[in-house]
Design a protein around this nucleic acid. Sequence first.
RNA 1: GCGCCCUUAGCUCAGUCGGUAGAGCACCGGCCUUUUAAGCCGUGGGUCCUGGGUUCGAGUCCCAGAGGGCGCACCA
Length: 499
Amino acid sequence: MKDQEGTREAELIAARRANLAALRSMGADPYVLTRFDVNAKASELQRRFADLPAGESLPERFALAGRVMLLRGQGNIAFADLWDESGKIQLFLKADVVGKEPLKAFQHHVDRGDLLGAQGRIARTKHGELSLLVERYDVLGKALAPLPDKWHGLVDVERRYRQRYLDLAVNPEVRQVFLMRSRIIAELRRFLDARDFVEVETPVLINIAGGATARPFQTHHNALDLDLNLRIATELYLKRLVVGGIERVYEIGRIFRNEGIDTKHNPEFTMMELYAAYWSYEEMAQFTEELYAHLVALVTDGKSTLPFGDRVLDFQRPFARVKYFDALQEHGGYARADLLDAERALHIAQSLGLPKPPSHAHALDKIFEAVVEPHLVDPTFVMDIPVLLSPLAKRRADDPLLTERFELFIANMEACNAFSELNDPDDQRGRFEEQARDRDAGDAEAPPPDWDFITALEVGMPPTAGIGIGIDRLVMYLTNQQSIRDVILFPLARPIVER
RNA sequence: GCGCCCUUAGCUCAGUCGGUAGAGCACCGGCCUUUUAAGCCGUGGGUCCUGGGUUCGAGUCCCAGAGGGCGCACCA
């Protein structure tokens, strides 16, 4: 790409480069500085001096640093909004305080977007704006690229995702979402650590991608000349660790599924999986309620309801519970016996206008999605899911066609999936063999058997409950974002091909 | 993969019936000691996403392509 003479953007950049050169010639090269002593944050000062009357100033001196986001001039006086990570504060430059030459340099050579360190006293202007009365400033970094519109910010969705640095720099509410994401995950870790869970890391590059039904990404290790897959779940490795005696274990990690992209799916996303020996899915349901209530209280300052899109979600405990087949009976009038019969289930799926499902399990899933999911707004546990859909969950002793498994639905979206883990190696072997048959029959999403996992179960795994929580969706609820791309810093995008 | 929609100045957006492309902000120059998106005056700035086609004439109509958004499909 070459700049053409007369293109506006090139001129904007040239003007900024000229200002850079001017600063350098004054001995104020922004790229030479390596440090700046910051002793205050904008929002702290706003809070601390909220009561300072207009027109008054204080003797104490502060130094802060951030990005210049707005410039307002008035001859021998200049105002600027300085944004740091915490918020913003106005800079007030007067010739008799900062000096005539520095003021002039500021007015002529500091551009919107520049990174600035400023020292001075706190004052509130006649107009009531808390300001730093600047005594000295340093340009700590030059913005050579022009910033998006000061009023509209960066709106173009594609650019927001591709150039997230710009989005974050000019749209403070976006930065808030990602800072909140970090707080949520930190709080999640504290919550788990307080309950004696141990955080581990298991492999991302694996030979057999199991623990879920999804197509994996494929890659290759050169030195071993070995085809590998990126993991689609952490389940089978974490359960190996329970076998090994780590009784409460979790992992928060990236997993990868080679699937489509929409507002609820990104090909790489963050999953928290957790396993607790000697718990059943009942204790896990209890735990799930506590965890969600805790996080909702964290982001709402103690409330139990959460605004989400155009509705309000109620996280008051206990959450609603409904049994899988009861829900289908209630919302669709379908009987368990019909749904558990492969032929009749396919028939029901077709009567609902669904495309022909490739398998019985698929049909059940689609029917549930169409009939029940639209009703699940407030957090609802769907309990006792058929073994047909649950290759890794333990059967109910009193009803072996069902498993001790629940899924939590929130806002018509699956929020988590939990069950009493199958620890009978013979039963697990049989289910792997079933999946292998599906795979041979052409189901690319059925994972190949992981025989070493069977060996692990043969060593002996205690009764254990496990749960998987999609962290991105969790953050969507807690920050009221309707697209998963708005809680992932760099969502997958096609590369831009230079012509 | 399918359908609908979007792509015009650095940014945000107008652009009528097909008749030689506009605004606000930003930038640049000048004036200005209390501004809050925001003082006043003035100058400059375009690969209308790309490539074809129709037409005397295309930002506008047609075809193909690229990128994106939404929905559907896929996907626990």
